[in-house]
Amino acid sequence: MRYIWLIMKVTFKDGIRSRVLFGITILSVLLFAADVVITNLFSLDVGKVMIDIGFAALSLAGLSVIFFLGIGMLSQDIHNKTVYMVISRPVTRSQYIIGKFGGLTLILLVVMAILGALALVSFGVGSLLLEGSALPRNFSWPILMTTLFFHFLSLLVVLSIAFFFTIISSSMYLAMLFTFCVYFIGNSIETIVKVLVKGEFITPSRFYVILMKGISWFFPNLAAFDIKATLAYGLPQDVTYLLWTGVYGFGYSFILILLTLMVFRQKDIC
């Protein structure tokens, strides 16, 4: 446990010092500033527009952390052979992976907390400029926190996918490409299956529908974590749905980290 904590701390410090993180923060601050300007172009449901832009900025920042910082750090460790320095000490490969994952999760958490606070500031400024008319219907802080939590959970799932592909692929760019593909499919698989099942525009064969439904079991349903509409329109929250989605997200990440550990244990990195 001590070694895991140590690697976590080192990863976190490395990440915080990184220029990538600095760039991401600057970009996000600009996006939040743009949020105040853009929302002035709308006259109805302005709060919803603010939430859209704020969460888009959070997503972009989170994905940048995963793609540039997460994949970058891990693949550099492996391909520059820096990982030898760690695993030649009394640190197991599993401890290394868990520590790295924990460190990056911490960075993600800190980034989300900072940008979440910035989003709230831009939301507050926007509300002031629009004389309070920007607040969404039935707005409540617990719903906002729940939405942020599920947003973080979806990024955690993407991070575990990124770890898996970084370990199994030989190139950093391949890992980025695979992760992006899974991220994209994860966000759209639900809609694709729904369109196929409905058969409104195309009439696919039964085999194709079953195949797509089967595939959807392998890819994470990232759309399930997107509960922005609940916040933006003050819709009622289904606690059972939220609980199961939480279990689903942590479960998927756990399985992928386990698979990553299994692959990394067998991997010849010499």
Binding site: V49, D52, S59, S154, N187, S188, L222, A223
Partner: peptide, 14 residues
């Protein structure tokens, strides 16, 4: 568009 825009579909609607 819904499939292509993923989690940014609401922003695309705006």
């Amino acid at each position: 568009l819904e499939i292509l825009s993923g989690e940014f579909r609401s922003l695309l609607a705006d």
